[in-house]
Design a protein around this nucleic acid. Structure first.
Length: 107
DNA sequence: ATGCTGACCAGGC
DNA sequence: TGCCTGGCCAGCA
């Protein structure tokens, strides 16, 4: 089995997301940096988008740099993401934003 | 090959 | 706060 460069990056991204602790959130860009892929936030989003439905990965702990979920408000994914985060104690403001200063992951 | 489209982001206004 | 811009880069028509 020969790992392609692509798989290597993908694995680093998945491993990084997997290391975000319960009750904390990280932005796509932050995950990219931690995975040694600075500036590749879109790649993180792409990789997460390809996750199988039943994945055990904590994809819900990844929000955009504004502290908001990157799905259309009210969409199934957005609702699920918020529900999972709130169950971990993450709070959302009235505008549906998470205060990254309070809940942001500090590696 | 080329152009468009994103689970994005930082900077400027 | 929000909108726009340029940068990013992999997939797909």
């Amino acid at each position: 089995m020969r790992a392609r460069p692509d798989d290597d990056r993908r694995q680093r991204i998945l491993a990084t997301v997997d290391s975000i602790p319960r009750g904390a959130v990280a932005s796509y860009g932050q995950v990219a940096r931690e995975a040694l892929l600075p500036g590749r936030a879109r790649l993180v989003g792409r990789v997460l988008a390809e996750l199988p439905a039943g994945s055990r990965l904590a994809w819900h702990r990844v929000l955009n740099a504004a502290g908001k979920c990157s799905f259309p408000p009210g969409s199934p994914h957005a609702v699920e993401q918020r529900r999972r985060l709130e169950r971990e104690g993450v709070e959302f403001s009235g505008t549906g934003r998470v205060d990254l200063a309070r809940f942001g992951w500090c590696p």
